[in-house]
């Protein structure tokens, strides 16, 4: 999207950018996962799920980068 063919003004607008909202909002909805059970490898839900959100963040930013390159 930002490749900018000659004559076309460049922009960083793209529908793909909406994907960035997911990893911003998800970790902030603490009321959804503020709980001990179910545990994973001994980690309470509150801890393992937030660590798992790192993967969501990496996936979303990578997709947006690739699709708007």
């Amino acid at each position: 999207m930002t490749t900018g063919e000659p004559g076309q003004p460049r922009t960083d607008r793209s529908p793909w950018n909406w994907l960035l909202v997911l990893p911003i909002v998800l970790p902030l909805l603490t009321f959804l996962f503020n709980s001990d059970e179910p545990r994973l490898l001994g980690f309470p839900l509150f801890y393992w799920l937030q660590i798992a959100f790192i993967i969501v963040g990496v996936t979303c930013t990578t997709i947006v980068y690739r699709m708007t390159k």
Partner: peptide, 13 residues
Amino acid sequence: LPYTVVVYPLVFL
């Protein structure tokens, strides 16, 4: 942890 998950998509653009 959520702080440093949220920050990168937030400042990406």
